[in-house]
Computed example of a mutant assay.
Amino acid sequence: MHSVLQRGNALFAYALSVLACLTFACFVSTVFLNYRTQADMKTVTVVVKNVPDYSASREKNDLGFLTFDLHTDLTHLFNWNVKQLFLYLTAEYETASNKLNQVVLWDKIILRGENAVLDFKNANTKYYFWDDGNGLKNNKNITLTLSWNIIPNAGFLPNIFSHGSHSFKFPTDYTNSRM
């Protein structure tokens, strides 16, 4: 005859097996969904300054300032396996010293149940747009891209890029360095 402890252990092991199967079914039911959507962006104002970087060598580096418009609807991305979205806006560009530069300019977390329609007009960047040299002045190919991570209840953490990006250029002259 089995003891109470052995029966409890068997019941607990069975319950964990059922929960693991349900978690896997949750993952499989949403892993093949298309989480990409259209995002419309444009820059409103673009300024570049040459200022000292006091956090490092105190050399003068380029600092870009921009305001942007962003419109997208992310409500259809939420399903029963999505807890939240981590959105971020990146700028990608090329300089003489680096083939690929990526800078995160803005981010936002949207929880399930919150408004997932983004309609920003003249929004400021959340983070500084520093270049590690003088690669922003007269740079003609800066590309803004909206990306997001889906934080699921079960499964892996996908990195998804939106359909649509926006390219712009920085001015050929520095703006007054006083801040």
Rank of each mutant, 00 (worst) to 15 (best):
M41W: 08
V104H: 04
K140E: 05
T37F: 01
H71A: 05
S55N: 13
N61L: 08
L105Q: 06
T45I: 14
N141G: 03
R36L: 03
D69F: 00
D53I: 15
L136C: 06
N34P: 10
W80C: 10
L85F: 00
V51E: 09
A91C: 06
K99H: 06
A91I: 05
N79F: 13
N139E: 02
N98P: 09
V47W: 04
N98T: 08
F12N: 14
N34V: 06
S55D: 11
L100W: 10
N138K: 13
Y54E: 12
N98Q: 13
T95V: 02
L85T: 00
V103P: 00
T145G: 00
C21K: 12
H71K: 11
F27N: 02
F68G: 03
T90D: 09
A13F: 10
T72F: 03
L22H: 11
C21N: 12
F120I: 02
C21P: 06
P152H: 05
H71R: 07
T67Q: 01
T43Y: 15
L136R: 01
K126Y: 00
Q84R: 15
L63K: 10
N138C: 06
I110Q: 07
G133S: 02
F78W: 03
D132P: 00
T145K: 02
S57A: 09
L136G: 01
V117A: 07
A15E: 07
L70N: 01
W80K: 15
F68W: 10
A91D: 02
L66G: 03
F86P: 05
A39F: 02
L74A: 13
K137S: 04
N122V: 05
A96S: 13
I142G: 01
G135E: 01
N101A: 04
D40L: 15
T30P: 08
W130S: 06
V51C: 11
G135W: 00
N124T: 02
W80D: 12
K99F: 10
L144W: 08
I150F: 02
L16Y: 12
F78R: 03
V46Q: 06
V82I: 09
A116R: 06
Q84Y: 15
E94P: 00
I109A: 07
V103C: 04
N98V: 14
C21M: 13
I150A: 04
